[in-house]
Simulated scan of single mutants.
Amino acid sequence: MSELSSRKSQLASFDKLLTIMDELRDQCPWDRKQTIESLRHLTIEETFELSDAILDNNLEEIKKELGDILLHIVFYAKIGAEKSAFDIGTVIDSLSEKLVRRHPHIYADTIAEDEEAVKQNWEKIKLKEKGNISVLGGVPRSLPAIIKAMRIQEKARGVGFDWEEKNQVWEKVEEEMQEFKAEFNAAKPEEINLDRAKGEFGDLLFSLINYARFIDINPEEALERTNLKFIKRFQYLEKAAKEAGKKIEDMSLAEMDVYWEEAKKV
Score class of each variant (00 low, 15 high):
M1N: 10
S2R: 14
S5F: 13
S6I: 06
S9Y: 02
Q10Y: 05
D22S: 10
E23A: 09
R32Q: 14
Q34L: 13
Q34V: 09
I36K: 12
S38D: 03
S38V: 05
H41P: 13
T47L: 13
T47Y: 00
D52P: 01
D52S: 11
N57T: 08
N57P: 00
N58G: 01
N58F: 01
L59N: 13
I62D: 08
I62C: 11
K63T: 13
E65F: 15
L66T: 07
I69H: 02
L70Q: 12
V74Y: 03
K78M: 14
A81S: 13
I92N: 11
D93L: 15
E97A: 13
V100D: 05
R102Q: 11
H103T: 15
I106G: 05
D109H: 15
E116Y: 07
K119Y: 00
N121K: 08
N121F: 15
W122F: 13
W122I: 11
L127F: 15
K128H: 08
K128W: 00
K130S: 12
K130N: 14
V135Q: 06
V139D: 01
S142C: 08
L143F: 07
P144G: 03
A145Q: 14
K148T: 02
K148Q: 13
A149T: 12
Q153K: 11
G158C: 02
V159R: 06
V159N: 09
E164T: 15
E165Y: 01
K166A: 11
N167V: 13
Q168E: 14
V169F: 05
V169P: 04
V169D: 06
E171M: 09
V173T: 08
E175C: 08
Q178L: 06
E179W: 12
F180I: 04
A182G: 07
E183A: 15
F184N: 12
A187S: 09
A187T: 06
K188F: 08
K188E: 10
D195F: 00
D203M: 10
A212M: 11
A212R: 03
D216T: 01
N218F: 02
A222Y: 14
L228H: 04
K229N: 05
F230M: 10
F230Q: 06
Q235K: 03
E238N: 03
K242P: 02
E249S: 04
Y259N: 02
E262W: 00
K264N: 04
K264P: 09
